[in-house]
Simulated scan of single mutants.
Amino acid sequence: MDCRPGCGACCIAPSISSSIPGMLHGKRAGERCIQLSADFLCLLFGDPRRPVVCSAFSADPVCCGETREDAIRLLGWLEQATT
């Protein structure tokens, strides 16, 4: 599946432990990434400074569901289940 334009759930729901430009220590689960635009697009997409974990994430119906709200809920659940 292709990323849903204007979703940004993967930039909010999961924690990211690696450094992100502007967020030296990464981010907590549920915290909005500083690199997420007002339109819910990654400002680092295609940029070599983008964390590897972000580049490796692929949109998938199992973790993204049918809507942005599904994605926030499912990714949040996965975060809780794996920590």
Rank of each mutant, 00 (worst) to 15 (best):
A29L: 09
R32Y: 03
L43C: 01
I72C: 05
P48S: 00
S19P: 05
P5D: 15
Q80P: 02
A9T: 07
S58E: 04
I34S: 15
A56D: 13
D47E: 00
L24S: 12
R73I: 03
L74R: 14
C42S: 02
L75W: 11
D39K: 13
G76T: 15
A81T: 06
L43K: 04
E66T: 02
E31Y: 11
M23C: 04
A81R: 08
H25G: 10
I16D: 08
S19K: 11
A13L: 05
C3W: 02
L24F: 09
D60Y: 03
W77V: 12
F57N: 02
T82M: 07
T67V: 13
I12Q: 04
D70G: 11
V53R: 07
A71H: 10
I72A: 04
P5Y: 14
P14M: 12
V62N: 05
K27E: 08
S37W: 08
A71Y: 06
R68K: 14
C10E: 03
L41G: 01
R73H: 02
P48Q: 00
A71I: 06
D60T: 08
T82F: 05
P21Y: 15
C3T: 01
C33E: 01
S15P: 06
W77G: 08
A71Q: 10
P51L: 13
P48F: 00
P14T: 14
R73A: 04
A71C: 12
C11R: 11
G6T: 03
G65H: 10
M23W: 04
D70W: 09
D47F: 01
Q35D: 09
C33F: 02
S18A: 14
W77N: 13
F57G: 00
C33W: 02
L43F: 00
M1W: 12
G65I: 10
L75R: 11
G30R: 06
G65A: 09
C3S: 00
G76R: 13
R49G: 05
A81K: 07
A71F: 05
I16M: 13
G22E: 07
K27M: 09
R49I: 04
L74D: 03
A38E: 13
R4C: 06
A71G: 10
D2E: 12
P5V: 15
L44M: 12
E79M: 12
P48E: 00
P48K: 01
I16A: 10
L78V: 11
S37V: 12
C42I: 01
L75S: 07
C54I: 13
G6N: 03
A9Q: 09
L44G: 10
L78G: 13
F45I: 03
